[in-house]
Amino acid sequence: MSNFFTSSIGKKFILSLSGLFLIAFLCVHLTMNLLLILDNSGELYNTGAHFMVTNPVIKIIEPVLAIGFILHIVLASILTLQNRSARPIKYALRNQSGNCEWSSRNMYILGAVILIFLVIHLYNFWWNIKFPTLGNTALNTVTVGGVEMEDTYTLVASLFKSSVIYCVLYILGGIFLGLHLTHGFWSAFQSIGFCNQIWRKRLECLAKIFAFIIAIGFCIIPLYFMLGLAGK
């Protein structure tokens, strides 16, 4: 195993595993979030969110998720820096549109936009839930089915109902994430060696469908509130 983590393929291996782990997280996250638009009273979402914060498995997953993000971002940055310096003199004229997809060429830029979004997103919710006294949004409690719990629904709903800017920001976040995944999804399988002539077509097609579901899924939530479908 010597030099595995410094080799190009070794680094790509860790990048793709962390990427696939983040994809798995996205699936859970999106499923949870869709509860927001299934029930305007917020009880369904609050129950789900309460289950998440009290579940011991989630307690363990939370730091793992943070590590996953950090690994992904650190490796992506190392790889991108190395790749930039591998061509000290650039071409004067370059025409890449004919030979590869735009998203595949701009993964780091797409990732950086996602990262900016992530910081804002964490501040909006995670920070305000963890440190309710420090934030500017009060997190109240409600009682659902006899259990007292945090009213996370109101925290989310009031942000989207009160600010079109935040709605647009979250919609853009969803779109950029989708673009990152049109390439990232199939690229991860290629990097771990799970690909051949037949599976490539399948994975590329699956990547488009998956990216579309993720983008649309995350976009309809702010849209739902923006269009007033959740009431005032």
Binding site: S8, I9, K11, K12, F13, L79, Q82, N83, A86, R87, Q96, G98, N99, C100, E101, S104, R105, M107, H183, W186, S187, Q190, S191, I192, G193, F194, C195, N196, Q197, R200
Partner: peptide, 28 residues
């Protein structure tokens, strides 16, 4: 000092012998 592959597939499009990037999956 060659860079790290990010599976853009540009090599395959420009390769005069149409070598497929399925071989890159095999190398991995």
């Amino acid at each position: 000092g060659f860079g790290n592959c990010t599976n853009t597939g540009a090599c395959e499009s420009e390769c005069p012998k149409s070598v497929s990037i399925e071989h890159i999956a095999r190398l991995n």
